[in-house]
Design a protein around this nucleic acid. Structure first.
Lengths: 159, 159
DNA sequence: TATTGTTATACTCTATAACTATA
DNA sequence: TATAGTTATAGAGTATAACAATA
């Protein structure tokens, strides 16, 4: 039985419904916020045929041309098989290309195609428009604050 | 081409890899943090046979016995068919039970079983242990700060 | 033997559509 | 007609296992 002080915090979305201790959990609020952001951005970039996850892969490849899939998998903590499927879709749509390394022919160096660069630029504009929408509810300095807090919280779980 | 000041912020997880503008996006950091929390809690409560989403359903039903599935679906912004499947699994495992309302026999009132209450208590202890682990990286007042910031950001997308 | 990458398979979460029961 | 709920189906995202190519 939740105690009275932990009930009925901000975050209730319906009259008469009690969210118990959920609104006081960082885990709960992070999940709710992530869902809201994901729904909004999926709607916003859906016509460009790129998911939020693909956007971040493209961004990583623009900043680090020649990266290979095992490195990407490690960075995102995904299985290499999972990454392989994502990359196959991006190759199939002509947004990235892959080339065997000369030094070590096991490595497949990845990079954006011109089409990939163009799509990334368009998606980036939409993403940054969304970020500005978030700034509208933040006071000066609060963006830096929330970025810092989130990074520290995530870091608490790096084994 | 990302500008220099937006590069190489805190958040890089690998030497020599450039995350571009990603670490400066709230959307990106919220997703990374959500993933870290989800991985940790899934591992922690896995032996109890309840997912994080199921935990929050059980909590809602403990706080609001008699709630129906359409109300839950609206609160979580999920389709009623999606909720129906989740609830069926919880009924199948004997954690909740459903009873047709006498006033309006279309409604199926949901509530925890004694077994459900017991499992919820155990999961809640693990969840709150995780929350205390997050507190270890936060200074006094910062938990309230991050909860407030996240709620305001999520609220920016309530159409 | 170890590493990179792919494919087959399966599981979870989600939505849409079509349906039944009730109002 | 409208609402509550279920079922069938499908798509996205993920992991594990088994495999091929390369070192």
């Amino acid at each position: 039985m939740p105690d009275p002080v932990s009930r009925r915090r901000n975050g209730a979305r319906a009259a008469g419904v009690d969210f118990g201790r959920l609104p006081g959990y960082i885990g709960y609020q992070v999940r709710q916020t992530q869902s809201a952001i994901f729904r909004d951005i999926s709607r916003s970039i859906g016509d460009l045929g790129v998911t939020p996850g693909e956007f971040s892969l493209l961004t990583m490849l623009e900043a680090n041309p020649g990266l290979n899939s095992v490195t990407l998998a490690r960075l995102y903590r995904l299985d290499k098989a999972t990454l392989s499927l994502s990359l196959k879709r991006l190759v199939g749509r002509g947004l990235i290309r892959t080339e065997r390394s000369e030094q070590d022919r096991r490595y497949h160096a990845l990079q954006l195609t011109p089409a990939g660069r163009k799509v990334l630029a368009r998606v980036t504009r939409r993403i940054e428009k969304q970020e500005r929408a978030m700034d509208a509810v933040l006071k000066p300095g609060e963006r830096e604050q929330v970025l810092d807090l989130l990074q520290r919280i995530a870091g608490a779980f790096d084994r």
